[in-house]
Structure formats: structure tokens, C-alpha cells
């Protein structure tokens, strides 16, 4: 579905991503993990053309850089980690923007737009709030609004850049469960940048571990999340730390 080959991003002498290659197939949820500064968010930006990069990004065999923006948006949806909306658009108006890719000119047909928007609002539990201003939403509701926008966009591949970074546990669970349900439909895949290794382990089917812009490991969760690899990359005993955290809960 998506093939990334030798992707390199650099600013002057500073190399953020160095020859990163990986691929994603339908049904997979690829977790991009790694310490701060590993280049995780830059990787998502480089794949969508948000930052200048060298290398190849192929979406369904086609050069993603050469595709028209609306064509690419029909295939790849992106959910950023936070949003600042300056004007009081309603939830529905923000969600409706997800259909732009299907009617990029005023002469295009808008058929299916109403159904897609309604379905996305219902999927994310926002239908009752559809007329509410986004300025009055909580962080979790706002993130769900933008998730609904990507659902309305109906892409095959969803790219998530730390989608629950500012959210509390309830909303973290909500957002991840919604994405897991979305992934159930045939032919879909998810790539997400995640800080929290527990979340990555719980929801991911594969992991790509980055450190200082380079791929350290790429494969099924159990092959990447080994003591040896994690301890080396995070420079600490990850299992011991996680176990101590869990033990505190058990004792309580």
C-alpha cells in the first residue's frame, strides 16, 4: 500500500531522517516509536509532502509527490496531534472539509457528501453536537472532530501524529478504539507515531523503531519490543521501569 525508500530529511548540516525505508500493507497498524528527537513526526510530515525530503514515497505504486493533492487525500488521511481553530466553525463544518478531496472544484459533484459526513459524525459520537462551535469543545472532543473529518475523507491509509498526546486516559482509549474499529474494514491501514510504548504494544500490529533519524528495528511487535533493542535505544531498562509502574497499581 505504502512504500517509503531511502527517505532523507536534512536542514543544512543537520540530518533529521537518514535513509529511512519501510512499507505498510492493508490490515496493518504500524507504530512508529522512538525517543524524543528520533524523527518520528518528521517522518509523517515527509511522507505527506509537508517538508522537503529526498527519497521515494510510493502510494499504491504511484509516486506520492507527483500526485495531485486531492488525489493523494483520497488515499491518505492525516490526524495531527493538536489543533488550533481560530474561528467558531461548527463541528459539522470542520467534518465536511474532509469531503473536499471528492469535490475540489465548484463544478464537481458533491454526491455522497451528506451520507459520509453524517456517518463520520455518528461513528465518533458527535452527531448530537454537530452544530456546536469547535471553540467550545474540550481537547478530546476537538480531536474526535478532526478524527471524524478524516473518517469523512474516507482514506485507505490513516497517518496519526501522536493523536492522543494531550488527552487524558478516557479520551486516549476512545480515540484508539475508534481507530481500531475503523481499521476493521478491508483494505485499510494505519501508521501512527506514539510516545507511549504501552499504547503502541496494545494496539499495534507492527513497529518501526527510530533513533536519531535511523531505523533501528522494523517488524512484528514482539521482534521490535525486545529488552535488548529497547534498552539500547532508550538507554534505560525499559522492562524494569514498566514493571515497577504496573506493580504500583497491583499493590494499590
Amino acid at each position: 500500500m505504502l512504500r517509503v525508500e531511502n527517505l532523507t530529511v536534512s536542514y543544512g548540516d543537520l540530518t533529521i531522517l537518514n535513509n529511512v525505508s519501510f512499507s505498510v500493507e492493508p490490515g496493518e497498524w504500524l507504530m512508529i516509536v522512538g525517543p524524543n528527537g528520533a524523527g518520528k513526526s518528521t517522518l509523517i510530515n515527509a511522507v505527506t509532502g509537508g517538508v522537503p525530503a529526498r527519497g521515494t514515497v510510493l502510494y499504491e505504486g504511484k509516486n506520492a509527490r507527483a500526485m495531485k493533492p486531492h488525489e493523494l487525500a483520497r488515499g491518505i488521511g492525516v490526524l495531527a496531534q493538536s489543533h488550533f481553530v481560530g474561528y467558531s466553525f461548527s463541528v459539522e463544518e470542520v467534518v465536511r472539509l474532509g469531503r473536499y478531496a471528492y469535490a475540489p472544484t465548484i463544478f464537481s459533484s458533491h454526491s455522497g457528501e451528506e451520507d459520509a459526513v453524517k456517518k463520520a459524525l455518528e461513528q465518533t459520537g458527535l452527531y448530537a453536537q454537530r452544530r456546536q462551535s469547535v471553540l467550545t469543545l474540550s481537547g478530546g472532543e476537538l480531536q474526535r472532530t478532526f478524527l471524524a473529518q478524516t473518517f469523512a475523507q474516507d482514506p485507505k491509509l490513516l497517518l496519526l501524529d501522536e493523536p492522543t498526546n494531550h488527552l487524558d486516559l478516557v479520551y486516549q482509549k476512545q480515540v484508539f478504539e475508534l481507530i481500531r474499529a475503523w481499521l476493521q474494514k478491508e483494505g485499510r491501514a494505519v501508521i501512527s507515531v506514539v510516545h507511549d510504548l504501552s499504547l503502541a504494544r496494545a494496539y499495534g500490529t507492527r513497529a518501526l523503531l527510530l533513533d536519531r533519524g535511523c531505523v533501528v528495528a522494523d517488524g512484528p511487535m514482539e521482534q521490535v519490543f525486545t529488552d535488548e533493542i529497547l534498552n539500547r535505544v532508550y538507554r534505560m531498562d525499559v522492562r524494569d521501569w514498566m514493571s515497577r509502574m504496573l506493580a504500583q497499581w497491583k499493590e494499590a
Partner: peptide
């Protein structure tokens, strides 16, 4: 006036506009 939809997308956020397929 013909670019009202695109302006909506920009008003929500330029990055978001790019993600929904606007040729920013």
C-alpha cells in the same frame, strides 16, 4: 468567491487544508 471552500480549510488551519487535499 469561487474559493470559499478552500478559504474555509485555510481558516481551520493551513496544515489541515493540505491534509484534506487543498493545493495550498
Amino acid at each position: 468567491l469561487l474559493h470559499a471552500r478552500e478559504l474555509n480549510a485555510f481558516a481551520v488551519g493551513e496544515e489541515n487544508a493540505r491534509h484534506v487535499g487543498v493545493n495550498v
